[in-house]
Simulated scan of single mutants.
Amino acid sequence: MLVHPWDAGLDEVEWQTWIADGHDFGQLSVNGLAGHPPMAVPTHFTCDGPRLLIHLAKPNPVWKAIEQDAKVVFTVIGDYAFIPGPWRAKPGTPPTDGVPTSYYAAVQFTCRAEIIDDPEAKAELLRRQLAHFQPDGDHALVAVDQPPYGRMLSGIRGLRLEVTDVRAKFKYDDHKPVEHRSAVADRLTERGQGLDVPTARQQLRRLDRIGPWKP
């Protein structure tokens, strides 16, 4: 992932706050087996300190690849929008001369994967995930000897991803003039399609922190 200086995370707190703000779905990427392409698996995840917690179905073909090479990448992408060329045209030039781009936030974790097969360890992983996704506790007890989860644990494997590196990218034209960024945020809010509004919020948040870009 290419990260220009103006796209980089401003500090660790920025990407940590972004992840904590409901960005808990990403893509696990692993090296492929000999002669096969890399594998990618979309899935929810939970943060556990410097680790990410995931569980997948036992029949998933990704397991053999992880057993062969535990080095994996997990990527979270959100707050994205397509920015039409006319929105980015320089003042005094024809709108059609503007070059379109994509805005987005992305956090990429490089990890070492540990497979979890012990029933109690898998139950604890599920308890931690449910505490995040269903904090009201409106679910049955997760116990190895009680239904419904006890009999289902054999059908999954857990993954504990030990994070070894983090790269964060917030691509919102932060190297452009303040007036340009503010105008694009207004246009995103007015268009209001897909993730336009949260994208505008990210752009304005970065604008408030950075102001005019200084190399």
Rank of each mutant, 00 (worst) to 15 (best):
L33Y: 08
R127C: 06
D11T: 03
T96C: 09
C111A: 15
F45M: 07
K176A: 12
V41S: 07
H23E: 14
H55Y: 15
V144I: 15
F45V: 00
R209W: 15
V76P: 02
V13C: 10
P42G: 06
F170D: 00
D208E: 14
F109C: 05
V142A: 04
L28G: 03
I210N: 03
A140N: 12
L33M: 12
A113Q: 05
A185M: 04
H55C: 06
P148S: 08
I54G: 01
T93W: 04
P135A: 14
A65Y: 03
I77V: 13
V178P: 02
H180T: 13
G92I: 05
G35Y: 06
W87Q: 04
P215L: 10
L10C: 12
G78E: 01
K169Q: 10
D118Y: 06
Y103K: 01
T110Y: 05
L53S: 01
Y80P: 00
L10A: 07
G192Y: 03
P95D: 06
W63E: 07
R167T: 09
D48A: 10
D7P: 03
A40L: 15
R157P: 01
G49H: 09
L204G: 00
F82T: 02
L28W: 04
A106F: 02
R112Q: 15
G155R: 14
T189W: 01
R128P: 01
E124N: 11
H180Y: 15
L2M: 09
D186C: 08
C47Y: 02
